[in-house]
Amino acid sequence: MATYDGLFDTLGLRDWCDGGASDGPMSMADLMAKAQGGDKAGDTSLRDLPFPSLDALHDACAAIPQSRDLTKGLETGFLGIRDALRIVVDPLTQPLSWALESMLHLMTDTPWWIMVPVLMLITWAVSRSWKIVGFVALVIAGLAFVDHYEVAMQTLAIIFVCAFICVLIGVPIGIAMSRSDRLQNIVTPILDMLQTLPPFVYLIPLIFLFSVTEPKLYGIAVILYAIVPVVRLTNLGIRLVDPDVIEAADAFGMTRRQKLFGVQIPLALPNIMAGVNQTIMMSLAMVVIASMVSAPGLGILVLRGIRNLELGTGLVAGLGIVVLAIALDRVTKASLARIDASQAQR
């Protein structure tokens, strides 16, 4: 006798309920109740009235599915479309695997005495500041000194590839969003979802979709997580361009293209660069989590520290991530400041 028996009786659905009855597997709670042998159903007071959830209704009417059928349904549904999905997604994302593999190769196989100067040269090119070049050299040297050079390079390689792809895809999406309010209304909730969904949640369907040995598995996870700021800030940056300047561009007969490349993007650049900075920082955060699905790098050591309770390993790798993050942040902020300075608007 279950609480909601009466409801189905009065609605005259008893026959339908019993007709659909099929003995599903017993839940743990049922088993426990049976083991205790007590049949307390008849004397439930109002205080104990259960919420009419799927499980509670199932007790009264066997034709109603249990909650676990929902999760099970999702799972079988996903597995059902998995093969079809793979045919489409697999070749589409294959270049990502190649890019990640070759970048990892490049950055770890190149001798350190070539790699470090190259990185310093890149730093100089974007920041134009000796102070920051020195800082970057110090960070890499410090990591190398405690034999974390290779893992640090792996982490950097993944970040470079993923952040680059984020910018490649994210900036055009942001531009498109800034030109159409409708697209903005569609994309914004997706961005909100990507930003609030716990990162582990992306990993679950991705594991089903690809094999764990493929680099694109973590590549996609990092990109999905890190693309949000660059899209948002590109959109915002273009929308914030002074309307007076846009009007002047119109008044002198600029085409949409001339306006986009000659006025809107240059003026939105500080905001776009702020988005790139955020994107790089977020890919670093995600690369650590993605080590759970075989992303190489400093994250692996952190994970080892947690799993094997190796306090020292975990702390050193964790601090390594911190200094790497500071270095990346300083370099991108410096290039941002350089852009800002060239067009300060009082």
Partner: peptide, 22 residues
């Protein structure tokens, strides 16, 4: 045609100058 008008026949000066800051 309108763009041609704006480019060749009419020019405009604005209250807030509206110069390209970059």
């Amino acid at each position: 045609r309108l763009r041609q008008l704006r480019r060749e026949t009419m020019s405009m000066v604005f209250q807030k100058f509206a110069l390209l800051p970059h």
